[in-house]
Design a protein around this nucleic acid. Structure first.
Lengths: 237, 237
DNA sequence: TCATATAATATTGTTGACAATATCGTTGAC
DNA sequence: GTCAACGATATTGTCAACAATATTATATGA
């Protein structure tokens, strides 16, 4: 049940988006991989029109790039894009935790505490899929509890972007940061210390960013053809 | 040349989006007004598919609401929505001015100064359309000069929302705030005073928000029917 | 052998007709 | 006279065939 789900009337479209996102964060689909409409149509047992809508949504979210008349590929965010995404998340999430410091009710604290416990459990049993999912969900949870619908929506697309960036640039050493930092953020919220909460969130996001090897620009590609011909580069406008 | 333009391959779709946005800020199209696909098709001399795409984009931007199987209407943001939008803008724009304080080159300052001069000119000659356009453009300009592509994109949709909100809740007294506050923001940027710039931006946005009569909840409607039957409420999920 | 032009194939983009759904007006029973 | 059910109309949603475009393969000349 990915927290990424885009609110669309059609369930099939959500499925397509979720599955593609999942494949990306699990590194099954590499950046630059082509997404042929026909192929997706067969996989999901739907029509091309639906696939098309899904791809349009995913492009909005920055997960895929659509080259006109040439099809869709998993996006390949540059180092600049990555820094932009984290910078934007910082702006949004600093405000969110500050806001939550003021408005958090005891049950909100309890929900967050329980969530972190789940993260710990997933971490302990080595369930990396759950770790990724829960780790992202924590941030979305803060947005939801802060009752900022718009900021939640924005954060959702930003998190999709950073998911892709993480999948693209992460070193195998830094799979995910443990739930300890989430714990410190929660502690600050509980203490109603806006400044500290904001600071902890900043630290957390900066940690996430610096854990990537952004400087090296690994430029991963999906398949042999792209690797050999550099099609993705030539295609860019 | 509305600064709202969404980057789409198809020019017609941009036109539709721009025209609808313009009609909204000029209060020609009132919130709640129905947007029949066929009607738009005739007006813009295009096909229903294109109109549909345009409406989907406008829904993403929060300018229209699409009720499944029932068509599209100009959105009617609630007071909460309005506060959310300004809150989000605050988060984004504080970061943008801070960033620009560090990175602004002399030519950037010149561009901003020139822009404010244009604002003054438009204000002086009573060209309210230009005033609205330029006033919004100033904020987008800051985002562009700050070289934060993602934040620019986010700010674009937020500005569309606040445009609608302004058109919806503004009192006739407070048409637009003059360019003086923009001037103070620029002065802070020029002085490289991050704290002051952030503060001026905050003040400016809060001023914009408080100039609206959000508390009264005028709940404007497009037609008599909606006013009497409260259809907009029943339609919501 | 390499580069260029051309035909063949594959993929995306568009259109118009059809199906599904909601709204509106009418009829009929109570 | 009011309400509910029904049919008529209007509007949106979907699809499959067609057109446009790009990519690949082939052929040709230097």
């Amino acid at each position: 049940m990915p927290w990424i789900s885009h609110s669309t009337t059609n369930e099939v479209i959500n499925q397509i988006c979720d599955r593609i996102w999942l494949a990306v964060v699990q590194r099954t689909l590499r950046p630059g991989a082509r997404l042929k409409e026909e192929e997706l149509t067969e996989i999901f047992g739907t029509t091309r029109a639906r696939v098309r809508q899904a791809l349009a949504i995913l492009e909005q979210d920055g997960l895929v790039t659509i080259y006109p008349n040439r099809g869709a590929c998993i996006a390949e965010p540059s180092v600049d894009d990555a820094q932009d995404a984290f910078s934007a998340r910082l702006a949004i999430e600093q405000r969110l935790v500050t806001r939550l410091c003021r408005s958090a009710k005891p049950e909100d604290i309890a929900i967050l505490r329980d969530h972190i416990a789940q993260e710990r459990a997933a971490h302990a049993r080595g369930d990396s899929e759950a770790v990724i999912r829960l780790s992202g969900e924590f941030h979305m949870l803060i947005a939801r509890l802060a009752e900022a619908e718009l900021l939640l929506k924005i954060l959702r697309t930003l998190t999709i972007r950073t998911s892709l960036i993480t999948a693209m640039y992460q070193t195998q050493a830094t799979q995910t940061c443990g739930p300890d930092e989430h714990d410190r953020i929660l502690a600050a919220i509980e203490a109603r210390d806006e400044s500290r909460a904001s600071h902890e969130m900043t630290h957390h996001l900066e940690h996430l960013e610096t854990a990537l090897r952004l400087s090296e620009a690994p430029m991963p590609v999906s398949g042999l053809r792209e690797a050999l011909h550099g099609i993705a580069q030539r295609r860019a406008p």
